[in-house]
Amino acid sequence: MDILETARLKLRTISSDDAEFYLKLINDPSYISNIGDKGIRTVDAAKESIQQGPMAMQAQLGFSLYLVELHTEARPTGICGLIKRDGLENVDIGYAFLPAFAGQGLAREAASAVMQYAHETLGIQRLVAITAPDNARSSHLLEKIGFRFEKIIRLTRNGKEEVSKFYTHDFN
C-alpha cells in the first residue's frame, strides 16, 4: 500500500515480497555498524522479520517502517518510517539506505516526508530518534530536519545494552 510520495520517492508498506532487498539492506556493513546485526541471513528469515516487525506494527498501530523506492525506476533504495520501540515513550523515526544511494539527499527527503505524515496525518505531536554515538551522518541529518540532541541513553536491544544519542522533535 502506498503511504506517501515526494518529488523523487515513493514510500509504501513493506511486504514479504521485499525480503531479498531487506536481507541485503540489513546485512550491509554500514547497517550493521550503525544500527546493529539482526542475525538474519536467509530470505525466509527476512520474510519472518518483516511479518513480525513492520507488517505487524502497521496492522496494530497504523504506521511502520516503509520501503523507499525511486519514482523513476520503482527500485528500492532503503527504508524510512515510524517505530514504536519498547523502552521509548514516544514514536521513533528511523531510516536506512543502501550505500549506493548515500549522499543524494534521499534520506533527508524521505525523513522529512515521514515527519510531515506523522504530524499531519497521524496527529503525532512529538517524535524521537536514536543514533549510534559515532554516526555523524545520521546526527547531521536529524539536526537538518529539525531534531535536537537531548541526551545519551542506554537501551537494551537483542539482549544487549547499547548507548545511543537521543534526539527529539516537538511539532508545537
Rank of each mutant, 00 (worst) to 15 (best):
M1Q: 11
M1I: 10
D2R: 13
D2H: 10
D2M: 13
D2P: 08
L4A: 08
L4F: 14
L4W: 07
E5T: 13
T6P: 07
T6Y: 08
A7F: 08
A7L: 14
A7Y: 10
R8G: 06
R8N: 14
R8K: 11
R8I: 03
L9V: 11
K10H: 10
L11F: 05
R12K: 15
R12N: 09
T13P: 04
T13H: 11
T13N: 13
T13I: 09
T13L: 13
I14N: 02
I14E: 00
I14D: 03
S15I: 05
S15R: 12
S16G: 14
S16M: 07
S16T: 15
S16A: 15
S16C: 07
S16D: 10
D17G: 15
D17T: 11
D18V: 06
D18F: 02
A19Y: 05
A19C: 15
A19E: 07
A19Q: 04
A19M: 06
E20W: 02
E20A: 14
E20N: 12
E20K: 11
F21Y: 12
Y22M: 15
Y22I: 07
L23I: 06
L23D: 00
L23A: 00
L23G: 03
K24R: 15
K24V: 08
K24N: 10
K24D: 12
L25W: 04
L25K: 05
L25I: 06
L25T: 05
I26V: 14
N27P: 04
S30N: 12
Y31W: 13
Y31M: 05
Y31H: 13
Y31A: 09
I32V: 15
S33V: 12
N34A: 12
N34H: 13
N34I: 05
I35G: 01
G36T: 00
G36Y: 01
G36V: 01
D37Y: 00
D37M: 04
D37R: 03
D37I: 00
D37S: 03
D37A: 01
D37K: 01
K38W: 03
G39D: 02
G39A: 05
